[in-house]
Design a protein around this nucleic acid. Structure first.
Lengths: 240, 240
DNA sequence: GGCATGCTTTGATCTAGATCAAACAGCGAT
DNA sequence: ATCGCTGTTTGATCTAGATCAAAGCATGCC
């Protein structure tokens, strides 16, 4: 499943990141059209299968990316194998750690995804030349920080039931289309990944899911597809 | 204990932030001397007692600050009273959430502290005019993000014993002076605060502390003062 | 001093969630 | 179809850590 770093960058479909020119992506929105042209000349758009590693924990990565489609999970693992998902990213998020080459976490496609890959050196130069871009990445970092801290509260102080409800709520909120109050979406994560996000075991995740199902808060079809008839009801399970 | 927001800004010792001119503080290091002079004219240095709230969760704050001395804890509380410390900040960290007025967390002095208080409007202007400052704050945000994610791993996947060891290691690392391998420091947090940082109860914190004491990894004097004879030993307890 | 007050430690018990162990899908390959 | 594989649910039991309850121990106040 893994894709070596160099491979990721060198074997991608060599197509300029056309749709970035719209206004997708944290990066592209902040660039002048001249910069965008230069960036496009040196960037690749690449399809990534679910499970593919984009950046490996502990590695030095020589590129950044923008998520164009799909969900990416950020993960930390301990050498004894315990692991914790520390962030979920959706289009049009930026992936990569500005200013530090060695990654303290791995980034992996949770679903099939498409990303735009930029060479690190070029983008670093553009960051330093473009306050607008710096601001844009600063914004994203702060957004991720807010999300991380919200999640710390969930990890430290919520019960198993509240944790699962929090996760479903998070996903439902980011999975776009939703009718008036009811919402349907595909879970981008397996039970095992959910467990790693919530700091618990898959058995407990499963039990809490069926508890939510039996109490009518959610409906489950095909393990992955979830329907929330009433989002307010789900929100009430979280005990914000 | 609380200090109203306006009070915090209006009743501080009206002394220009002289020592910032050295190079203390995330903010001051990034400014030109002209900007620094202007900032100083509108800023206050203020002594804060342990327990004083600097920013209240849910409030709109009209200022930022720089920690000059002491430790500040960032805290989130749920309406049923459960709470979680989501960050610890030390001099010369910056306190405040750029670009968003309403705070999703509270900032409170964990120890007696000294801060420099800046009006938000002025600093926001300077941020937009000074890429160097933007970069500096971006750096701090990324540093906090790394710390938050490291802590998510601790909250989600480490045992009680590992959690306490992680906390002691974190504090020991930030409390400055340390001889070759041995380290001594004052805990900036009470047992209850430690519990809120680690997502556990004070009883469990206490038990784990005495376990570490009995196994010789730490020595405890006066509840607050800790001696770590061998930092490597402590590090081994963490199981990174 | 003597006594209230707020931490902190220690002990006894309880329980939410982990662990161990099966069954139960869904699904692609033969 | 049947087999094998992987992911999920469900059940039975166990345990780390929570909860409940009582002492210690400093510190400040009268």
């Amino acid at each position: 499943m893994d894709v070596a770093r160099s491979e990721l960058f060198e074997t991608g479909t060599p197509v300029a990141c056309a749709s970035c020119q719209a206004r997708h992506g944290v990066v592209c929105g902040a660039l002048s059209s001249g910069q965008l042209r230069e960036l496009n000349r040196h960037s690749l758009r690449r399809k990534i299968e679910a499970g593919c590693e984009i950046i490996a924990q502990g590695s030095e990565s020589s590129f950044y990316s923008n998520i164009m489609r799909g969900v990416v999970k950020l993960c930390k693992v301990m050498q004894d194998g315990r692991q914790q998902i520390v962030g979920l990213q959706f289009a049009p998020d930026f992936v990569g750690r500005p200013f530090i080459r060695e990654s303290s976490l791995s980034a992996e496609a949770a679903t099939d995804a498409e990303i735009c890959v930029f060479p690190r050196n070029l983008l670093d130069r553009m960051i330093s030349e473009t306050p607008e871009l710096q601001r844009s990445l600063h914004d994203q970092a702060l957004k991720e920080l807010d999300a991380a801290r919200e999640w710390m509260l969930t990890l430290g102080r919520r019960t198993a039931g509240e944790k699962v409800a929090s996760l479903l709520y998070l996903i439902a909120t980011h999975a776009e289309p939703q009718t008036a109050t009811s919402t349907a979406f595909d879970l981008p994560l397996s039970r095992a990944e959910i467990a790693d996000f919530l700091g618990m075991t898959i058995e407990t995740v499963s039990r809490q899911m069926t508890r939510l199902r039996k109490s009518g808060v959610i409906r489950i079809e095909n393990f992955r597809h979830i329907i929330v008839p009433d989002m307010d009801e789900l929100e009430r399970m979280i005990s914000a």
